[in-house]
Design a protein around this nucleic acid. Structure first.
Lengths: 172, 172
DNA sequence: CAAAAATAGTTAATATTATTAACTATTAAT
DNA sequence: ATTAATAGTTAATAATATTAACTATTTTTG
């Protein structure tokens, strides 16, 4: 019998909520012929300041594929596929970095910008609705909690590996 | 230029955090030959009281596939596939409901129970580590926030559809 | 009560999303 | 100058998911 614990409840709820939000997003973005991942890339190229990626590090130059891979936590090979779809749709374009010819910088086309703007109202509608009923102070505290959890996961990798070992050892 | 907003930051952070946690879970469960989805099914069959599903509704009888589909927010067809893997691995078993012969009830085998118990330490390790540094009061508030968001998404479907309309209308 | 509707589960075909491994090209480090 | 590392791509494949059509039951309702 597994015990009730507030910590595990939190983790499960985060999963559940993210899952549910993703489904809602899928519904919206399907209408404009995009998947959630493709749309996330557009949001990155639109320099959405609310993306954790932009809070973690500053970016003055246009993003490249490997940075997107980093932020979305997927492989570069996967990003290549996603990008080629967006290129075909004419929503983004690529140009080669002049200083480092390995790099390709990605930017939104006029059509890409228009699409991002067009989807803003329904996206913000859902977001505002979700968090209405809480005051500014509560929302701020909530965000800090999320960010604190996140930085623990990102900065202390060795610690996490030690938990994995608990499992490996049990195998013997 | 998209504006900074605490509400959008919250939603983005939830996505990011869930994503990161899923990756960590994947690493752990890969070691025992399971995927995250399969492992989530095991947690359901172990009646983990921290799953949002069990907080939303009581279940005295063993779960069936359609209830899992509900909780994981996927189709029944998908659950059929996941279950057949777990059956092949001998981690779960099925029996027919005597009162309603359409239904099949799912339970863990002895091996399934052993696996859940074996993965508990590393799972709880990550979870406790993640939330350490916050006091009980803060954790409680955080969980309430998550649950409040969740119930909004679940109970007020028509409201969400009205946001979708903002997009459809803009298409014309 | 009989017909229609709903529920539970499955199967087949397919789309999406992702991974790994091997590769080219370029730049940075020793 | 050779070796490492970085950026991106390609090909093969795995995992995850969906839709649509189907069977078998049970429930609803006219």
């Amino acid at each position: 019998m597994i015990e009730k614990s507030i910590e595990e409840s939190i983790v499960m709820s985060i999963f559940d909520l993210a899952n549910q939000l993703k489904k809602i997003g899928d519904d919206v973005y399907q209408k404009v012929g995009l998947t959630t991942q493709q749309w996330l890339i557009l949001l990155h190229l639109a320099n959405n300041p609310n993306l954790p990626f932009f809070k973690r590090e500053k970016h003055d130059k246009a993003l490249m594929a490997s940075e997107l891979a980093d932020s979305l936590n997927v492989t570069r090979a996967n990003i290549t596929n996603l990008i080629s779809v967006l290129l075909d749709k004419g929503l983004i374009k690529q140009y080669e970095d002049e200083l480092d010819r390995r790099k390709k910088r990605l930017i939104l086309t006029k059509e890409g910008i228009a699409l991002v703007n067009r989807t803003q109202p329904s996206r913000l509608g859902v977001i505002k609705y979700l968090t209405e009923g809480f005051n500014e102070e509560e929302k701020k505290t909530f965000l800090l909690f999320l960010e604190a959890c996140m930085s623990k996961l990102i900065n202390e990798d060795e610690k996490l590996k030690s938990f994995h070992k608990l499992l490996v050892d049990a195998e013997d």
